[in-house]
Design a protein around this nucleic acid. Structure first.
Lengths: 333, 333
DNA sequence: CTGAAAGCGCTTACAG
DNA sequence: CTGAAAGCGCTTACAG
């Protein structure tokens, strides 16, 4: 059998209470006794059972993380950041995805009700947010990685999407481009409207008007980037630049431009968003607005940990900076 | 306060034992009583506390997964496969990485001792395997995603690496290439020696001898692929094909070949290994030996779950098939 | 078919 | 500074 607190107590000739006290550095313990107990603990290789501690203390030292899917190229970095922060705090990370649809959410909800973790990190929820709202109301600490979060009054972390759009526009303007088109993501994402707003505002500031027909709604896939470019060209628009709301659709745009015989960046400059590993491998390599993905995961986890630790939830989102990474698809002026 | 089994028992006018029986479908319960209890459970929205169940039952319905890092491009798929399988079985997945070095492993070991999960999935361990061996000996069910596992007598899942090497060689031979070079990964990986062996054997079978100088050791990074090609060229070897042991180093090889003015595939055909998303985006797109990453994660999780469920551990590795995916870097003959 | 009681392995007032 | 006892919320023999 594994060694329990009772074994330690017996071997040390003290009560379980005392062992517990030295374990948790709680209450006064005679220094001598404490040392002796610590010795026994080390000798026996005793480690408290997390199940028992959890039950007695009413907490699990575990956080949950709910993500739509792990296969989006930016997820790994966010997840790694979260895992690092959570582990550093001595917590565990329980990972869930909504990858199998409705059934996933049902099982996830069970885990929540079963109090399997002390707090929850939710990444870019879509419909799942409807399930998360009541969990929060029921007292579960929740932090969102999402740009719509402020409207939902959840603590959250996001990035300067607005500024990112502005950076893209300024760069294209500096390159002398006056006929840019935009490929957005699904419009219900907060990041989408922000990126667009920043972009259009910067154009405006330079006297370049942005005709709404020069914006097409994509869905963040490569295919949607291709289709958008095909549509722009079929519509007969003159196009000397593309601002895509993520790198995947920018890669699709590059592909479609090449297929149409347009040279990048000579004829058309292209800027993406995210800076995923792929961005260095497209032809030509992609200029993009970098999001600090790792830092986003870390910040979200730390925010949640603080919340669990008793800090009152902040409703102001933690906003991390985006920055322009210049590569060949839209080179330096 | 949250509703407990005692609340349900009281409301139903039965004992906690009976509620527990209907909950777990264990032992005989009068159908009428069972129905009544189920009604109460639904009405009260009762869900058993996973902590309490775990303590009483001695298990957690949680599995651990230990990965070196999440940022290798193939990890996401393996992880997604594992999460899907684990969730489907009603288990949770506790994720750990060795990303922060020694400290990570110490904390991880604590979690193991604390019995935070019922079984462990380990992906491509390097030194960490030394820490895992005693855990297994202490009774923890462990499954490895690793090609060396058979030597360690761990249950494991791997792929037909040997055949993959053979497929690559046959394809290059069919393209008329007789002067291939190989960029391997670190030699302590089982997959590396297998891929090389299969490749060399197929060449041999066609009367093409493989000079050892035509193999260079890489480390699976893009940079190492570049350096390997630079070395081959500097050595004055004639090269009409490259077989890289993963897609990242193949991408590096493509880059170095272009820099050296060699045309791909006309002058040099290139084949990678893995089929990560990047493979479709290199210039030209990469022919590669596909590994069924998602299926690997699923198979490993299911093997572990069966093991936890009491099935005796199988020491024969579960071997999944690799297949050649032909793209422009080494087109159809 | 059902209940009372002990036990899982801790923590935490409460006394002393 | 320390221990006995109750409690966290379940499961599981043991009786009946």
């Amino acid at each position: 059998m594994r060694v329990t607190i009772a074994d330690v107590a017996r071997a040390a000739g003290v009560s379980k209470s005392t062992v517990s006290r030295v374990l948790n550095a709680k209450g006064e313990v005679d220094p001598g006794t404490a040392d002796r107990v610590r010795g026994i603990i080390a000798r026996l290789g005793y480690v408290p059972s997390s199940r028992a501690v959890g039950l007695a203390r009413g907490s699990t030292r575990t956080v949950g993380m709910l993500a739509p899917s792990l296969t989006w190229p930016w997820m790994s970095e966010v997840l790694q950041g979260a895992v690092d922060a959570v582990e550093t705090a001595g917590y565990g990370l329980l990972l869930f995805t909504c990858h199998r649809g409705r059934e996933s959410m049902v099982q996830f909800a069970e885990q929540v009700s079963a109090r399997a973790f002390d707090g929850l990190l939710v990444v870019e929820p879509e419909d799942e947010i409807d399930a998360v709202v009541p969990m929060r109301r029921a007292g579960l600490p929740v932090v969102l990685v999402d740009d719509r979060a402020r409207h939902l009054s959840f603590p959250s972390v996001s990035t300067t999407n607005d500024l990112g759009g502005e950076l893209a526009a300024r760069h294209l303007l500096a390159l002398g481009r006056r006929a840019p088109v935009v490929i957005t993501g699904p419009p219900h994402f907060g990041c989408v409207s922000e990126r667009l707003a920043g972009f259009v505002r910067a154009l405006d500031g330079h006297g370049v008007e942005h005709d709404p027909r020069r914006t097409v709604e994509g869905d963040f896939t490569e295919r949607s980037g291709e289709e958008a470019v095909e549509k722009f060209l079929a519509d007969g628009l003159d196009v000397d630049a593309v601002f895509a709301h993520n790198d995947l659709s920018a890669a699709g745009a590059l592909r479609a431009l090449r297929a149409a015989g347009r040279r990048v960046p000579e004829d058309v400059a292209v800027i993406g968003f995210d800076d995923i590993p792929l961005a260095t491998h497209t032809t030509p390599p992609l200029t993009t607005v970098r999001q600090p993905l790792r830092a986003i995961g870390e910040a979200a986890a730390n925010l949640l940990l603080a919340h669990i630790g008793g800090d009152p939830p902040t409703h102001d989102p933690v906003v991390l900076p985006t920055e322009l990474v210049v590569r060949a698809s839209a080179p330096h002026p």
